[in-house]
């Protein structure tokens, strides 16, 4: 009945999974470059951001093609418009991973980084990104809502890191610049969490038709 349309929707889903995986990789390798002070890896992460941008263009034109050819309504229209909005957030996630990688290319933070718990926060962030895309692909409302709630946990990590950094700087004034950079990295991670939350909110819209704010 609507074979071509369903195939195109599958292609859209698959591309979103691929773009989601690219974002997760970008975050993981940016943080790994930070932890191990691996400048080539950081540079590779900055490079990889272009591929995420290309993927965004590709998905965007697929969505426009779907709107043009299929003139979707109801849930089809909601899923396609949600996809269009989601990729903007995913592209920003790529940017922020690249921003983290860029800091790594400027300064060796290997000494200061252990003072705070970046690794755990990163794990939480990647979980949010993965689950927000999973929720879209599997039309899983419960999962989308749990991602939105989980943002508070990530905000908690950020507050904790900020506090630890204040303690660190008052004990050791030598590392002022490193502290600021780590704070920025934590802020980028926290922003990635916000983007994952946005994605999850679009998933809720796609499923229910109302936007949770």
């Amino acid at each position: 009945m609507r074979n071509k349309f369903d195939t195109q929707l599958d292609t859209l889903n698959n591309n979103l999974i691929i773009m989601g995986a690219m974002c997760e990789n970008a975050i993981a390798s940016a943080v790994k470059a930070l932890m191990t002070y691996n400048v080539p890896l950081a540079q590779a992460t900055i490079e990889a951001e272009k591929q995420i941008d290309e993927k965004e263009r590709e998905i965007e034109s697929l969505c426009l093609k779907l709107l043009l050819q299929q003139q979707p309504v109801a849930r089809d229209l909601r899923f396609i418009s949600a996809a269009l909005k989601m990729i903007t957030d995913m592209e920003r996630i790529g940017d922020q991973a690249a921003d983290i990688a860029e800091i790594v290319t400027f300064i060796d933070l290997s000494e200061s980084k252990n003072k705070v718990n970046i690794a755990e926060m990163t794990e939480a962030i990647i979980k949010m990104v993965t689950e927000s895309i999973d929720a879209f692909v599997n039309r899983n409302l419960g999962l989308a809502k749990s991602v939105i709630e989980y943002d508070d946990v990530v905000d908690g990590y950020f507050t904790r890191i900020k506090k630890d950094l204040i303690d660190f700087i008052s004990a050791d004034k030598q590392h002022g610049e490193a502290v600021l950079d780590i704070l920025m990295i934590a802020k980028y991670l926290e922003r990635i969490g916000d983007h994952a939350t946005n994605i999850a909110e679009w998933v809720v819209f796609a499923i229910t038709g109302t936007h949770q704010t």
Partner: peptide, 8 residues
Amino acid sequence: TGDYITGR
């Protein structure tokens, strides 16, 4: 309704 208008 959803099934009809989306062509299912």
